[in-house]
Design a protein around this nucleic acid. Structure first.
Length: 241
RNA sequence: UCCGUUUUUG
């Protein structure tokens, strides 16, 4: 079953979900029962193709067959909920995972996926509650919440969260800075944007990538500072990240 | 063997 799963995951990683599904069928013809990893791989693959309907169908089949979903299964299906803003389904899953293991036992990645789902459904109160309840958070958790507020253009909260990361000695990464710069660009905060992009390399040791430069080009352009935008464009690294 | 956060054009 591990070999089949590896093959399926290989197809899925290439976006070849038809081929992955063929494997899923073929293994059964060969007398190998798919395990939870096989199901997760398919659900994830559909999620990445934005084929959320199929992802939901597979998840329903997992439950119908009485198979036990694991945390990766929940993460994958929560992602599908987020991308179609299915808040009600998301809340059902939330109570389901809490019922199974309790919130305390939840893996950081699962709690973060839950938080992210609430953000993408526009329910920042729920998202923040999950965040507050978490005993362990990693940089992805922080990034998910910051991205949520950035989407709401709540720049003050974004800056506060960034400051709180510093206070708690959490190291921001390239994604943290992207989210912060994005909100600067959407609000038109040129000075703040410059401040962050300058600090990221100097103070935090995170080299501004092509994406960060694109963000700054956008920020300057929207603000009508075309000269600065051109300077940024010329400084942009050519490697895509 | 399978997971979570990401800018602009949108």
């Amino acid at each position: 079953v591990v070999s089949w799963n590896t093959l399926m995951a290989g197809y899925a990683a290439q976006g070849l979900d038809e081929e992955a599904l063929n494997c899923f069928h073929q293994m059964q013809l060969d007398g190998v029962s798919p395990d939870v990893v096989s199901w997760n791989t398919m659900i994830c693959s559909y999620g990445e193709q934005e084929d959320n309907e199929k992802a939901f169908n597979l998840f329903a089949q997992v439950q119908d067959q009485g198979l036990l979903p694991n945390s990766v299964t929940f993460v994958s299906i929560l992602k599908a909920c987020g991308s179609v803003a299915a808040l009600k389904a998301g809340k059902t899953l939330h109570s389901q995972v809490v019922r199974v293991d309790g919130f305390e036992a939840m893996e950081v990645s699962l709690a973060t996926a839950l938080l992210d789902m609430y953000c993408k459904c526009g329910s920042m109160v729920d998202a923040h509650q999950v965040f507050d309840a978490m005993l362990t958070r990693d940089v992805v958790t922080w990034n998910a919440l910051i991205a949520g507020y950035a989407r709401q253009v709540a720049y003050k909260i974004v800056f506060d969260l960034f400051e709180r990361m510093r206070e708690e000695a959490k190291q921001p990464d390239a994604v943290t800075f992207l989210n912060v710069l994005t909100v600067c660009s959407h609000v038109g905060l040129v000075n703040e944007g410059y401040k962050y992009v300058e600090a990221m390399g100097r103070e935090f040791g995170v080299a501004p990538s092509m994406k960060h430069h694109n963000c700054m080009v956008d920020l300057y352009s929207r603000a009508g500072q075309l000269g600065e935008a051109v300077v940024m464009l010329e400084k942009t690294p050519t490697q895509p990240d």
